[in-house]
Simulated scan of single mutants.
Amino acid sequence: MIASLSKRHPERSQPLKWFPRLFNASLAERQKFELSAFGIHWPKLDEDLGFEGFFTYQGPKLCLGQK
C-alpha cells in the first residue's frame, strides 16, 4: 500500500500494484524520493505521483474480458 496524509484531504491509501514502477522497485529505490508542493518524485525510477491525482484516482480501468 501507498498512503498519503494531507491537511486538505483525509488520509488515503491505494494498492502499490496500481503503480507498476513503484511496485517493481526495490524498497531502497522507493525510499529515495523528493517532495514538492505538487507531489512526490522518484528520480531513479523516473516516476511522479501528483497529490491531486492520488486523492482522486480510482484505480486502473479494466478492459472487457479482464478480471
Results as ranks from 00 to 15, higher is better:
N24Y: 02
N24F: 08
N24M: 04
N24W: 06
A25M: 07
A25L: 07
A25F: 02
A25V: 11
A25K: 13
S26N: 08
S26C: 10
S26K: 12
S26H: 11
S26A: 12
S26T: 12
L27G: 15
L27H: 12
L27V: 01
L27S: 14
L27R: 13
L27P: 15
L27N: 15
L27E: 13
L27T: 01
A28D: 14
A28C: 13
A28P: 14
A28V: 03
E29W: 02
E29I: 11
E29N: 00
E29M: 00
E29C: 03
E29Q: 07
E29Y: 00
E29T: 15
R30C: 12
R30H: 10
R30G: 12
R30E: 09
R30D: 11
Q31P: 05
Q31H: 11
Q31R: 15
K32Q: 06
K32E: 03
K32Y: 09
K32T: 15
K32L: 09
F33S: 13
F33V: 04
F33Y: 12
F33I: 00
F33P: 07
E34T: 15
E34C: 05
E34F: 11
L35F: 01
L35Q: 11
L35A: 13
S36Y: 09
S36R: 01
S36Q: 06
S36A: 06
S36L: 11
S36P: 05
A37H: 02
A37F: 04
A37R: 01
A37K: 05
A37T: 09
A37L: 09
F38Y: 01
F38G: 06
G39H: 01
G39W: 06
G39I: 10
I40P: 12
I40T: 13
I40W: 08
I40V: 14
I40M: 08
I40G: 09
H41K: 15
H41I: 14
H41V: 14
H41L: 10
W42E: 06
W42N: 05
W42A: 02
W42V: 08
W42D: 07
W42P: 14
P43D: 07
P43V: 12
P43Q: 13
P43A: 12
P43C: 08
P43G: 03
P43I: 14
P43Y: 13
K44M: 10
K44H: 04
K44Q: 12
K44L: 11
K44W: 10
L45P: 00
L45T: 07
L45C: 08
L45W: 06
D46Q: 10
D46L: 05
D46A: 00
D46W: 06
D46P: 00
E47P: 04
E47L: 09
E47I: 07
E47Y: 08
E47N: 03
E47K: 08
D48F: 14
D48S: 05
D48Q: 07
D48H: 12
L49S: 01
L49W: 03
L49M: 09
L49P: 00
L49I: 15
L49Y: 00
L49A: 08
G50Y: 12
G50M: 11
G50L: 10
G50A: 09
G50R: 09
G50W: 14
F51T: 02
F51A: 02
F51I: 04
F51R: 02
F51H: 03
E52T: 14
E52H: 04
G53M: 01
G53D: 02
G53C: 05
F54H: 04
F54D: 04
